[in-house]
Amino acid sequence: MTQEDTVPPELKRNVFIAPVDWIYNLGRAASVWPVMFGVACCAFEMIVTVTSRFDLARFGMEFLRASPRQSELMIVSGTVTKKMAPQVVRLYDQMPEPKYVLAMGACAISGGPFKDGYNVVPGVDKLLPVNVYVPGCPPRPESLLDAILKLHKQIRAETIRTSPWYRKDADREIPVPEYGPRGLVLPKGDKS
């Protein structure tokens, strides 16, 4: 049986056949809403990226959502301190699946100039799985746009069959660190 037989003639020029993955990812990639979460200096360049000069709305991201429960992208825009780390992890846990993390700026990548500090987490990837890294101190709005396009590429390469958030056995919740006397400690009851 060929395609000619199955598709009625009146639909021949109106139907578009594509894999589910392709169409599903296209929709997801074109409407990634970031959580409105400015950590430090880079937050300012993030706000500027939303303004009319750089216009993030072109990529379906006109909304910075104030609640993590309505968003799927966390732009970690600045230094994550140890005092802030539990809140960052909790925010991530509160975001619905699928969720992505973008480490913006040198501080979020590795601690940047503040790496030596006693209260600085040397890179947000010590706490969360990061999808895209954007170097710069702070990165220009153009590089943030480029990172977002890279994230779109990643999203469009995913497939439903292997994506972890559809599997029942996968536990993607990250344990929230606690304050200890010398730094961050593992949560109690999770000392395995």
Binding site: K82, L127, G180, G183
Partner: peptide, 9 residues
């Protein structure tokens, strides 16, 4: 002396 962390993802 500087601080140290137990917690690493």
């Amino acid at each position: 002396p500087g601080s140290e962390d137990e917690y690493i993802f």
